[in-house]
Write a protein that binds this DNA or RNA. Sequence first.
DNA 1: CAGGATCCCGCTAGATACTG
DNA 2: CAGTATCTAGCGGGATCCTG
Lengths: 146, 146
Amino acid sequence: MPTSTAAQKRAQAKDEYDSFLAQCPSRQLLDRISDKWVALILAALGSDGPHPGDGYVGEPRSMRYSELSRRLAGVSQKMLTQTLRALERDGLITRTVTPTVPVTVTYGPTDLGLSLQQVMWGVKVWAEAHMDEVLANRKEYDNRVS
Amino acid sequence: MPTSTAAQKRAQAKDEYDSFLAQCPSRQLLDRISDKWVALILAALGSDGPHPGDGYVGEPRSMRYSELSRRLAGVSQKMLTQTLRALERDGLITRTVTPTVPVTVTYGPTDLGLSLQQVMWGVKVWAEAHMDEVLANRKEYDNRVS
DNA sequence: CAGGATCCCGCTAGATACTG
DNA sequence: CAGTATCTAGCGGGATCCTG
């Protein structure tokens, strides 16, 4: 009888690899930015166009909670709050409370957040240049197997 | 009585925005590359280093199913097959079947897949340059609220 | 060797209701 | 206005067993 079974060895290798993955900076970043609302919030706070992603030019602007809520139609209060907290925790946006009555809260991008946006810009450029090709490949593939 | 209630209007706006989101090229791309294994498979097929992500230089190489399975320790058969199928469908990798006995199947990157890798390279660079800062922010934030 | 088919479980997004 | 609290259903993903 071996000191450890093959199954145990496999499980251990898996755990080691998983923790390696969890600590990989790229993996951590992907986990964060792939969140449904992160990119949109960053884009909204990073440019002052009428829609997020309209253009990269333009001053970064701060927005109030309710303003973000309107801009990102379809986001639930829960997810908006949750996402904003996460971004603030990571130092990607700032949260400013002004003690008026009722209270006013504004969110704005940090330098770190703005630099992250530039990476996402690269993603946007590739997507707009090649996603139609990907979609075409997808259709063709589906036709072949059907 | 209005022809539509406020709740109905909100629901409609949400649906419209959701479908807009679903069709956004950047969103589609993020959904694909944020998959746990996509980046790793692409990296593995795009460079011949001992580990995925070791270096961007080096020839793209083709790998067999079992080779990928070993390289990406911890991936389940189901997810590996599922991910490979999705990437092939999108035209990002090729799947080649050689009718030996038993059958031999190799996967390799396409030009499109290689170009996508360059975008992910940008992500990797940002992550390695700034994730420690993000992590530090996170720690500090947690101390403030504790 | 390279998968396909199934069962099952944990997580998480969403809806709803309430509050300083 | 800007959130918090709770409850629940759906599904992504792992484990397991089977096959040409």
